[in-house]
């Protein structure tokens, strides 16, 4: 039974959610930290910039707050890549894919179009996450579960912006 779960393609969303909730207990207990993802991208961005511009990058006010180093959250995000790889390999759904099917059904199979749009989306996502001080993990799960007012407002704004933009993309541009 337990072994079968490892090989299943998809779990009940409630079971996955409950497991993530339990995982958050361990993050608080063992690491005294809430689970979050977006600062890892900030730190990596700083590390890359430092390769080109040297240590003066460390003096930027934002990188004084979020030093460009490998920290707990950076390792967590690396772990997410590994964990999803293990999960998808066990169930056999791991597949190298450039254009997701929902996108292709509306906008076609063009690789360059999908990559361009994904790049723009990624830029907005990284920019917006740091602007808001957190992402769907840090605000959306960890902040809301702590009953922070800021995180519930962020959660609502994430989905307000997301629903409006998705409606525009798929029902107006794609419709």
């Amino acid at each position: 039974m337990m072994l079968e779960l490892l090989f299943m393609e998809q779990w009940s969303p409630y079971m996955a959610g409950i497991c993530i909730g339990v995982l958050s207990w361990f993050a608080f207990l063992l690491s005294d930290k809430p689970i979050g993802c977006s600062t890892a991208f900030t730190r990596t961005s700083g590390m890359i910039e430092r390769l080109f511009r040297g240590s003066k990058v460390n003096e930027k006010p934002y990188y004084k707050e979020f030093t460009p180093t490998v920290d707990w959250e950076w390792m967590l995000v690396l772990g997410v890549v590994i964990g999803a790889f293990i999960s998808s390999s066990l169930s056999g759904v791991f597949q190298l894919q450039w254009v997701p099917s929902t996108w292709a059904a509306t906008f076609g199979n063009s690789l360059s179009l999908r990559l361009l749009v994904a790049l723009i989306g990624g830029i907005l996502l990284g920019f917006g996450a740091r602007w808001a001080g957190g992402c769907t993990s840090g605000h959306g799960i960890s902040g809301t579960l702590q009953l922070a007012v800021s995180s519930w407002i962020a959660f609502i704004c994430f989905f307000a912006g997301g629903l409006a933009a998705a409606f525009f993309i798929f029902n107006i541009l794609g419709g």
Partner: peptide, 18 residues
């Protein structure tokens, strides 16, 4: 404001950071 920008990026990319 950050949340709304993030939301638009979420829909355009189709993934969030995690």
């Amino acid at each position: 404001i950050g949340g709304l920008i993030f939301g638009v990026g979420f829909a355009v990319l189709g993934y969030c950071p995690g």
